[in-house]
Simulated assay, not measured.
Amino acid sequence: MADLRDPAEQSVAPPIIVAMGISGSGKTTLARGLAAHLQWPFVEGDDLHPSANIDRMRRGLPLRDEDRVPWLNAVAGQIAEWRRAASPGVLSCSALKRGYRNVLRQAAPKNLRFVHLDISPDEARRRVRGRAGHYMPEALVESQIAALEKPAEEQDVLILDATLPTHETIVRIVSRYIGSASSP
């Protein structure tokens, strides 16, 4: 694992990066690629959903705020675990609303960074329609679009076009949050 700390600033916590966006935006692909490039731990946020949430989505029912509470707490718990261990990390998580992002920010207030993968509704639907083996049906993309509170004015969020090649997105993230634009 790369040591990201400046020798003069050994007390600086390493960043924890959350790839966020609606279903189909490519957050899992990006987060996996970024984690592999940086040799950092990766956690898929969808894996932290309680089974009741997965069953609900599988049936085509959108999650409600109250359904997301245990999931957000589990995601925040993972972030807090990395923070306590002074470990960097990369996580994929829709983080659709500012309130959800604020729950995550509380887990690592100084070193949590978001990458919002901005995507058109048509492209998100096309991608979700074309993927196999995922419980999220295309019909739920609309509910995610409706729930999304775009993070345009949030300072710890890098907004990127979700249709950029993954390697280009990784270079931009590394340049912004790590300080070196090494190629993936």
Rank of each mutant, 00 (worst) to 15 (best):
Q10V: 07
S143T: 03
D6C: 08
S182F: 13
H134C: 06
S180T: 10
T169K: 03
P70S: 14
S120L: 07
V90C: 08
R105Y: 01
L140E: 02
A76D: 01
R84A: 06
V115I: 12
P14K: 00
W82D: 09
H37D: 15
A13G: 07
A147Y: 05
D67T: 12
E138Y: 00
P15L: 00
T166K: 12
R176W: 13
R125S: 04
P151A: 15
F42L: 00
R176V: 10
V69Y: 11
L96M: 08
E123M: 05
D161G: 03
R64Y: 06
A107N: 00
N102H: 07
S182W: 15
R172N: 05
F114E: 04
D118N: 11
P151C: 15
A31E: 04
T166V: 13
I178N: 12
V18W: 01
P50T: 13
I170Y: 05
L48C: 12
P15I: 05
K150M: 10
P50I: 04
L63P: 01
I178G: 13
A52T: 11
M57S: 10
A146F: 10
G99P: 09
V75T: 02
A181W: 12
L48S: 13
G24L: 06
S143R: 06
E81P: 04
R126D: 04
Y177K: 04
R131A: 07
N53I: 08
D55H: 09
L164V: 06
S92I: 00
I178K: 01
A132M: 12
R98A: 03
D6G: 05
S87W: 09
D55T: 12
I22G: 14
P15M: 00
E44R: 03
P184F: 06
Q39D: 09
E81L: 06
K97Y: 11
I22Y: 08
L96N: 13
A35Q: 02
R56W: 01
A181N: 13
A147M: 11
